[in-house]
Design a protein around this nucleic acid. Sequence first.
DNA 1: ATCGTTATGCGAAACTTTTCTCACGTCAAG
DNA 2: CTTGACGTGAGAAAAGTTTCGCATAACGAT
Lengths: 208, 208
Amino acid sequence: MSGREHQKQRTRNALIDAYFELIRQGQSPSIAEVADRAEVSVATAYRYFPNPQSLRADAAVSATRNMPTFEEILADAGDDPFVRIETVIRHAAAMQFGDEPVWRGVLHATLERWFAQWEAGGEMVPVRSTARHDGVSLALRPLESELSPDALRRLTHAVMLVWGVEALVVTRDTAGLDPTEATTTMVHAAHALIRDALTQAAVTSDRK
Amino acid sequence: MSGREHQKQRTRNALIDAYFELIRQGQSPSIAEVADRAEVSVATAYRYFPNPQSLRADAAVSATRNMPTFEEILADAGDDPFVRIETVIRHAAAMQFGDEPVWRGVLHATLERWFAQWEAGGEMVPVRSTARHDGVSLALRPLESELSPDALRRLTHAVMLVWGVEALVVTRDTAGLDPTEATTTMVHAAHALIRDALTQAAVTSDRK
DNA sequence: ATCGTTATGCGAAACTTTTCTCACGTCAAG
DNA sequence: CTTGACGTGAGAAAAGTTTCGCATAACGAT
């Protein structure tokens, strides 16, 4: 670590933290406002984040940093895939419903990243981490012996649809559910998908 | 219809159309750019849309106007809920994958509407139409006789999670699927949910 | 065709956001 | 303690966005 990396890291964090504070109290702050709150000069803020999107984008990734890994979450969840996926979903839902503006901001920022790439016209680099995929894979690992690779792959993708920020948006905005019922719906859907995958596997193996 | 409603309607449409054209060719246009493209003066554009969000929001609702109703889509889909939901999902997916920037724009705009309400601090009016709920309800109507109201309600909410713009975003950005496989995944998930709801209903009615 | 109404256009002004320039202060190394 | 390097601050300049006032011309009705 050469030079003054720490100093830079501090002001950068100060800016991102200030952004979160303002978001949580219900604003969509400009760079100037964030700089003010962070007690950093506007010029410096612009040195770190040339435009509001880049600030939002970086804030989005740092929102996902402070959470425990799926390994930790699943540490003592046992081997039952139903319990495991429920653990993951309830954990994520609690976090996301508890901090809704921040997580909607994450979605908002990733959409902006996608548009930026689309405008640039170049090839599309993934705008999202593989976190959700990893989480579902890990939770469903006990099914590796029960399901064919194909079936497991399909199930994984299907389960990815029923929770996370996007599912939060659907349950709240288009279904009009409260957080509790929304979470129940997500868990129920995931369970149903697993149950169905298992019965389908049983059916096809009967046939041969 | 008194006065010059038509004239107003024309310039309004010109603005929204121009916005779509620019979006489709990969830009996130300012009001000035939209006005230019629409051959309308900047001042007039501002008279219709005081800020970029309001333009995006109105464009979002008008994007949903030009599509056939679910009744039309399901007109000759028969009574099989599996076929019916597949019809709806494939139709929506074709449209949304075929015009991805516009539909991502719809999601982006509704997030902005949500944030605007959140900032205002007032009560939260729904930021989305009931279209998806209506579509799923209609497709699943044949199940009204098979499932308890509760079970049908749960199933409806679950199915709502697995298609639409949010599902598009998940399949593409976090799962990395191409449009074809993404659509297959959505249809598969919906079928699995229905299948499971039916078997569960059979199981519980056996018990009594 | 003519007339009153009113949406529109134009250009300047007010305001906000972003960039620049240069001086200052702080940190690490000798 | 000094020195060189470099992150930072302050304010002005530049670029972009939104508003305003007034003249024009398009529209609907007579």
